[in-house]
């Protein structure tokens, strides 16, 4: 059974890790979390990103949430920003797609072309 006392220990370890972190060359992942995104399955997608980023030890990746991105019919929509602020928008991202985006884009640095909003829109 977990207790808040245990959290203190985890906190110390995390604080040390943050102090060691030098490079800020990471990605920011933003999952659309408005009514449209939520009904399409955005919540488990966000949870999966958090889980995988942690599992792979990607300390420089932050996972966050945004409101409606205006593509309600193609939700869940996920935006990935690189360190220079360049944006890649993915559409119809489901839990099964998260691993590919994490491995190929967040680790490998290569955009997953067939899941981009542009490509999916064109295919419709």
């Amino acid at each position: 059974m977990k207790s808040l006392a245990e959290l203190k220990k985890i906190r110390e370890e995390a604080a040390n890790r943050i102090n060691l972190r030098t490079a800020k060359n990471g990605y920011r992942v933003a999952v659309g979390m408005a009514t449209c995104g939520i009904t399409a399955g955005a919540r488990p997608v966000l949870a999966k990103f958090v889980e995988m980023v942690s599992e792979k030890g990607l300390d420089n990746v932050t996972v966050t949430q945004v409101g409606c991105l205006g593509e309600c019919a193609l939700e869940p929509v996920v935006e990935v920003f690189d360190a220079d602020g360049n944006r890649t928008t993915y559409a119809e991202v489901h839990v099964d797609d998260v691993a590919t985006i994490v491995e190929q884009h967040l680790i490998g640095g290569k955009v997953v072309t067939d899941k981009t909003l542009e490509v999916i829109k064109k295919a419709k």
Binding site: I10, R11, A14, E51, S54, G57
Partner: peptide
């Protein structure tokens, strides 16, 4: 105490 909730290890816990 200043460590963000979104820190990977904290979030997982």
């Amino acid at each position: 105490d200043g460590v963000p909730l979104s820190d990977n290890a904290i979030a997982t816990w």
